[in-house]
Every structure is written in C-alpha cells, then in structure tokens.
Design a binder for these strands. Structure first.
Length: 775
DNA sequence: TTCACTTGTTTTTTT
DNA sequence: AACAAGTGAA
C-alpha cells in the first residue's frame, strides 16, 4: 500500500483484506458482531476514494430499509462527496426505482401501486371467489403463499409444474390473479423483483446498459437471498461486475420464507471465488457468550465453518434459570432487570427475547404491573393499522379508481348502505364486462345501484376537489369527505384511531419535506439520463428520457400522492413508535437479528417452544431453530440469561414442558445455574424449587447441589385412580423420561399425553404403556 | 344491514 | 386467552 488511507486505519487484518480485495467476485463470511456493516461501507468508500469506481457504478443491496439507511448514514460520514447516483437500497426499493424508470417497457401504468401482503391476500381471495372455488380447500393465505413462492422461484404460471389436480387449480388462480393485478395496475412485492428480472433478461439494450454501469455490486445478508434474488443479482452483475457478497450461513433464519442458504456455496462455486474471507474476530461479546454460541452451532451439519473468537476475556458466566411457571419466570425476569438497572444499565440495553409473539403477554403484564417501561417490537406497524389502511385506500382510489382492492375495502366503510349483496351484484357485473368495479356501478340497478353510484361520485368529487392541492391538503380533505373523521369521532374507542389518522397527515408532511417526495421515482431516472448521456445505447437513453417526461396534464412526473402511496407500501413504518423513553426491549428472536444489547434474556427455552414443535419433524427445521438460538445468543454483549419454565399457559391451557435440548448443547463451564430466589409474593404458593426432574440429563455443573427439595407444583392437579397427574415426570422404556401433559378418560380408556422432549409428545394408552413415576 | 353470538385458529417476518 | 371470521336473528 503506497499511501495508507485513513479509511482503513482501524481495521483488523481480516477486515482490511476484505475491504481491499481486487475487483472480482468475493464472498465474505462475516460472523455475528465481526464488523460486517463496517466492512461493507468501508469497501464502498475505499473503492470510490481510490478512484476505482464512480458513485454511479456502485450498487449496494440490503433486505431491510433500516440496513439501507444505516449504510447510507455511515457512508455519508466517510465520504466528503455526496453519494449521488449510487444505488443503495433494499432489493424491492431498487426494483421500484428501476420499474419507475422503465414502466413502459415493463408494461406497467406509470403510477402503478404496490400491494402489501394483506392486500395481496385479499386480492387472491377475490380471485378464488370469482373462480367459484372452495375457500376451505384453497385457503387464500396458502394460495398467496404458493403464488409468492412461485414468483420467488422465478416461475410464471406456465412454468410451474402441475404435479396434481390441486396444483393445477392453484396455477389457474395464479394466472387469474396476474391478470387481475395487471388490469388494476398493481404489483405485489415478488412481482417487483420478477418483473425487473424479466425485463433485464429480455431487453438486451437495457441489460447492457446496467451491466456496463454497475462495476461493483455489494450484497448484505447474502444468506437470506432467495432463488430469484440470486438470479437477479447475476443479471445485473453480468460477466464483468464484481459482486461482493457478505453473509453468515449460521445466521440464516429465513428458510421458511424461501431464503436459500445454499446460495452462498453456489455463489462461491459459480463465480469462482478464489478465497473466502472469514471475519471471525468478534467485537461484541465476552468469551463465555461466544463459547456458548460456537459450541451450539457446531452441532449443525453443512456449515461453511467458522468460529468466533474474542480478545475480551471470558466475562461473566451465562446464567440459567428454571422456573415452575411462566408467571414465575416473568417475576424473575422483572427482578433481574430491576437489579441490572439499579446497577446502572440503561433499560434500552436490556432485551427480552422469545421465540413466538404469544409469549410476550406474561412478561408484559409483569413489567406493566411493576411500572417498568418497556417497548414491544413486532406489533402492528403504522401503515398496517386498519384506520390507516382505510385512509390509504381512499387515497389510492383518488389516484386510480380501478384499484378494486381499495374499492372493496372502503366501499362500505364507514357504512353507507352498501352490503354484501350489492357488492356481489357489482362484482358479477364487473366480471361479465371485464371492467373494474368502479366502471361497473352503472350496471347495478335499483337502490343498490344508486348507493354505489353515490360512492363513486364521492370519490370522483374528492379527486376533483383535491386537484392541485398539496399532499397534506389532499389527505385532510379526504379524511373529512370520506366520513372517516366523523365515524371515528363518534366511535367509542375511536380516539386513538383519530390520532393515528392525524399521524398519517404528519407522515405525509414529513415525506414531502424531508424526503423530497418521489426521490426514487423522479430524481433517479433523471440521474440515469445523465449517467448514460455519454457513449451509451441510444435506445436506453430515449427510454429513460421518456420516463421522466412530465404528465401532460399536471406537469408532474409522478404525483406526490402516488409517490407517498408507494412509500407507504414499501416502508410500512416503525413497528411501534413509542416515545423515546428508556425502556426494556421486548421482541422475538427473529426481530432481534442485527441488534445487540448489554444484557440479553432468552426466555421460554422449552422443548416444543424453542425449538418450536413445528420444526422438529425434519433435520433442516431443527438446524434452523439452532441457528435461531445462535442468533439470540450472539446478541448479548456482557450478560446472557437463559430461562425456561416447567409449565406455561398456551392457547388458554397449561402445558407441561421439558427444558430445551439446547441446554445440552452448550458448554457446561460457561453456564451457571442460578438458585431461585424467594419470589416474595405471598407464602406457600410461589416459592420456587429446583426439582429433581430438571437435573435429569447430565447437567453436572449444577451449583449448590445440596438444595434438592420436593417440587411444589404451581397448581396441584387432582390425583385420579391410576395415580398419575399432569405435570408428573414419568419414565417410559422406549422414550425415556417425559412429563405428563394431559390425562384423559378413566379405567381402560385412560390415556396420557406425555412430552418426551426430543422424542416428541405422544399419546399413550395407560392400559398398554408402562409409565413409571419418577420423583 | 347490522349486531350479537359461535366457531376456529394460533411460529418465526421483510418487502 | 385473544382474536378473526362466519352465522343467524332482528
């Protein structure tokens, strides 16, 4: 290195090597907490600063808006020059950009709108209804899943293999759904990707243009890419671009939605990556935490292989706590948290993680009752709230009256005497004429027809009245003219909803001022024209120029309203924007990915819950659960707590659980089983004991081995004639030790449901099976 | 058309 | 337990 750049000053050797790799396909295996984002952004800055590429020649793709924003922010701090013309964004955001510029070639209307997942389900539902199919057999959600899955495999209806009658029908639905979307001028998320991919594939001039342009393509979280995204990247990269893929196969936790970890190995092979660089030095956690993570994940097969190390020393042990009930677990969490907070740890540096959302309830009530501020992630997001979706539907109808999804959503909300019957008539009429609902209102006779026409006129009036107004004024007018404001004002719990509608106005205002609306839609084609004005393909230049030709009527390239609606679908808003007070962080393990905290509590570590019972059937499922656990562990900086409970309320009934197998996969020396404290609520009931049962499977490193006392179950079940009770530990010759979950029947019919941990939960006839009580 | 009641469902989630 | 979706009566 002739002149050391300050950019690279604080990188370790591995990072340095990754950042300064020659412009060839590269694969970086970046462990948790190894400075992945840093490498990614420094690489971009370095490439630009050393003049190897102009900002316009860089594309950087992420999965979430958050990651994209973070990358932009960090880059902004590194580079003095504004990063204009760089394509940094999510896969879908970049596709949106692309399709806004090439809408004509993509056969889309200029103002095409994007369906979010719930819109998509209701659109599919309509197709299923229109085709007179049985909704029991063809569940809209599942069919939607099928369609999205097909698209993510790059398959159009004609390409999908019709293995059986069922699939054949779903393909017909897929086909009809596509027609419907095209007719209504809407696209779903997968369509954004597929449409972009196909246009690149089929249009040589465009392909050459973009392939020549992007010299460097950087991909974050590569392990989460699906088949289509992989093909998409290949299409944009062409033969000469350098793809810089960063990922961690051990953190692949989205296989259930189509992510293919195999893409990493495939990439290595297909792009002839000479040397895979591993970032294994961890800057986040102490040794005991990392040892636990390493040991656990080593149980997975088919890994690319990677071991995290730290120079921070072992730190504190990983604390393990067993509780008799989920309630007790929550109490313990509460006390532990308060202790940490008293010791000076900010609440926002403490995370409570769980496998599934339903588990948050108990914890929430414990925190709530104690008056501890907390924040739950993963609830309804802003743009997904019913009242906001209603408002957005009106706005969409102003923009595009043929958007039937929106039409149906609000045609009778607030109620205006248009019931199911009227809507059905209207849909029939529309089907016959092949036109949109809005265009078909004239065909419905009688009182229904009058009401329907009244609705359409109302929307038309809105469109007329808001012409030329600012975005804020448009929304305010719509809120009143639609009757939404009046409706929620009289509604008994409409106050909060009204506030959300007010918030929508603010969001729009912020969108216009801060973002500079339609940044993606407008500025980029303009940039694109500039970028290609030189010796590029003339046809592409013309195409791009056409895309930025203003609308003859309004003079706008894309209306602020259309741009805002796009923004609303592509970026659903924060999960729950509770004011910035210092609060405990509650979230699922999935949503914790990418975050880090001083103290992390992983709760509900029970067989059937974590690992989840639905994942136990196959090896892949279990390995994904293990990766999930790995992700959870590696979120912790200083302290890690693991907890489980013998009983838990689930779906309204008490379940008896066995501790998670993951405990057997952690290094004993790193763990410390902590003694239950006096819980301090009432006498006789809630004192917790270490049960003999829990010590069964070889956890030799128990501390304080002397205090084995008979367990006092939280709720003492009645003892029937066979002498067994729910919650009791039993031994079975074949399945080993288990816990009785439920008992049914009596005499010869008596049956027991027993949870045998890794052997699963079984129903056993007591007259046949020999169950020996263990105590 | 609407309201009250019954029934069924319940992993993880971004765009 | 909690919520959505469906059903039946006014």
């Amino acid at each position: 290195m002739s002149s050391p750049t300050p950019l690279l000053a604080n990188l370790n050797d591995e990072q340095h090597e990754a950042v300064t790799l020659p412009p060839r396909p590269a694969l970086i295996l970046a462990g948790a907490g190894s400075g992945k984002t840093r490498v990614l952004t420094t690489r971009i800055a370095w490439l630009i600063q050393t003049g190897q590429v102009s900002p316009g020649g860089v594309m950087a793709v992420t999965f979430t808006n958050k990651a994209a924003k973070e990358m932009l922010t960090r880059l902004g701090a590194m580079l003095p020059i504004p990063v204009r013309g760089m394509w940094i964004g999510t896969f879908h955001g970049l596709c949106n950009r692309f399709l806004r510029a090439h809408w004509k070639l993509a056969a889309l209307p200029q103002g095409f709108q994007i369906l979010d997942s719930s819109d998509q389900v209701s659109a599919v539902k309509r197709v299923i209804k229109a085709m007179n199919l049985d909704e029991e057999r063809f569940v809209p959600k599942q069919v939607t899943w099928f369609i999205a899955g097909s698209k993510e495999d790059g398959l159009r209806p004609k390409d999908v293999q019709a293995r059986d009658e069922n699939t054949r029908t779903m393909i017909r639905v897929y086909e009809a759904y596509e027609e419907q979307c095209q007719r209504e001028g809407v696209v779903d998320f997968a369509e954004l990707m597929l449409r972009t991919y196909e246009l690149m594939r089929d249009n040589e001039a465009l392909r050459e243009h973009y392939q020549r342009r992007f010299r460097h393509i950087l991909v974050d979280e590569f392990q989460d890419t699906n088949k289509l995204q992989y093909a998409w990247l290949k299409m944009f990269a062409g033969p000469q671009a350098a793809i810089f893929a960063v990922g961690d196969d051990d953190q692949s936790i989205y296989a259930f939605r189509g992510a293919q970890v195999g893409n990493m190995a495939q990439f290595e092979r297909e792009f002839k990556v000479e040397k895979v660089i591993k970032l294994e030095r961890n800057y986040r956690s102490f040794g005991n935490i990392l040892d636990s993570a390493n040991e656990l994940i080593s149980r997975n097969s088919r890994r690319l292989g990677k071991n995290l190390r730290t120079e921070a020393g072992p730190g504190e042990p990983v604390r393990v706590y067993e509780s008799t009930s989920d309630f007790g677990e929550a109490q313990w969490l509460l006390e532990e948290i308060q202790q940490l907070h008293r010791e000076g740890m900010p609440r926002s540096d403490i995370a409570l993680l769980y496998r599934s959302n339903a588990q948050s309830r108990v914890i929430e009530s414990a925190l709530f009752n104690a008056g501890v501020p907390y924040k739950v992630y993963g609830g309804l997001r802003f743009f997904e709230r019913a009242e906001v979706k209603h408002a957005l539907s009106y706005l969409r109808l102003i923009e595009n009256p043929n958007d039937d999804t929106s039409f149906l959503r609000v045609v009778n909300f607030p109620t205006r005497g248009i019931g199911a019957r009227s809507v059905e008539q209207l849909q029939d009429a529309a089907r016959v004429s092949g036109r949109s609902l809005c265009q078909s209102v004239g065909a419905v006779t009688g009182k229904s027809g009058v009401n329907l026409q009244g609705f359409v006129r109302m929307v038309d009036d809105m469109r007329e009245a808001t012409r030329g107004l600012t975005l804020r004024e448009i929304i305010e007018h719509m809120l009143h003219a639609s009757g939404l404001v009046d409706f929620y004002r009289t509604d008994k719990d409409g106050k909060e909803r009204l506030e959300n509608l007010e918030e929508l106005v603010n969001a729009a205002e912020a969108f216009v001022t801060q973002e500079g609306f339609g940044k993606d839609a407008v500025a980029l084609p303009v940039d694109e024209v500039a970028a290609v004005s030189a010796p590029q393909t003339e046809s592409v230049r013309q195409e791009l120029a056409a895309a930025v030709t203003p609308d003859a009527e309004t003079g706008e390239i894309m209306s602020p309203l259309a741009a805002f609606l796009t923004h609303a679908s592509l970026e659903a808003g924060d999960n729950q924007a509770q004011a910035g007070q210092d609060a405990i962080q509650l979230m699922t393990v999935h949503s914790a990915k990418g975050l880090e905290f001083d103290a992390v509590f992983i709760t509900g570590l029970e067989e059937g819950l974590f690992p989840h019972e639905n994942s136990l059937s196959d090896v892949d499922g279990l390995e994904e659960e293990r990766r999930l656990m790995y992700v959870a562990i590696t979120r912790a900086r200083k302290r890690l707590y693991l907890s489980f409970s013998q009983t838990r309320m689930l779906h309204g009934q008490t379940r008896y659980n066995v501790k998670s197998r993951f405990f057997d996969e952690l290094p004993e020396p790193a763990l410390k089983w902590i003694t239950p404290r006096n819980q301090g609520f009432g006498s006789g009931f809630a004192r917790e004991y270490q049960s003999a049962w829990s010590r069964g499977s070889g956890m030799g490193s128990m501390v304080g081995a002397g205090r084995v006392e008979p367990r006092a179950p939280a709720v003492v079940p009645r003892a029937p004639s066979h002498g067994l009770r729910a919650g009791q530990s039993v031994f079975h010759n074949k399945f080993g030790e288990g816990v009785i979950v439920t008992l049914e029947g009596s005499g010869d019919d008596a049956r027991a449901q027993v949870n045998f941990g890794r052997h699963g939960t079984k129903w056993l006839a007591l007259s046949v099976a020999k169950l020996t009580p263990v105590e």
